[in-house]
Amino acid sequence: MNVTPYIFWFLSVLALFSALMMVTSRNPVYSVLWLIGTFFAISGHYILLNAQFLAVVNIIVYAGAIMVLFLFVIMLMNLNRETEPQKNRWLKFIGALAGGCLLLVLVAALKDAELKSQQAMVGGGSIGLIKVLGKELFTRYVVPFEISSLLFLSAMIGAAVIGKKENSQTLNS
């Protein structure tokens, strides 16, 4: 008996359900928690593909660091059902339209994709292991890798500069 397809379907349903709950939850704290659930389901998918490094890093970075900051902000603002601002009806309509357009583009792009020859290897393959991944990143993809690290560095410096500026302004005023 091969349980992989069952795990795949379970994780897919979990990911989609958590994502839907994240969007429809009234309480923003619940939304964040459902989004964390989605990240865990996606990490499960990575593990099925034997992309262990990606799975763990997805949890450390997204679930463990970024969502903690989200939760910080939401908890400190104390948003809840009573204080939720009522959005303009037109804004909701336009949002749905824009989301629909994105869906259309995605479906159109996937329609012509060659799915048969591009099937993922399930459970096998060593491309997701850290040794292979590191070698690829630092030889074949070294330029994009370094460029993205520069981007991160500039983002960090930018955040520090913005943080400093506001601090001095509040001190002066």
Binding site: Q52, F53, A55, V56, V57, I59, I60, A63, G64, A65, I130
Partner: peptide, 11 residues
């Protein structure tokens, strides 16, 4: 992934 799993769970 060994030790990275510990870090993931701790985070």
């Amino acid at each position: 992934m060994g030790i990275l799993i510990v870090f993931g769970i701790v985070s």
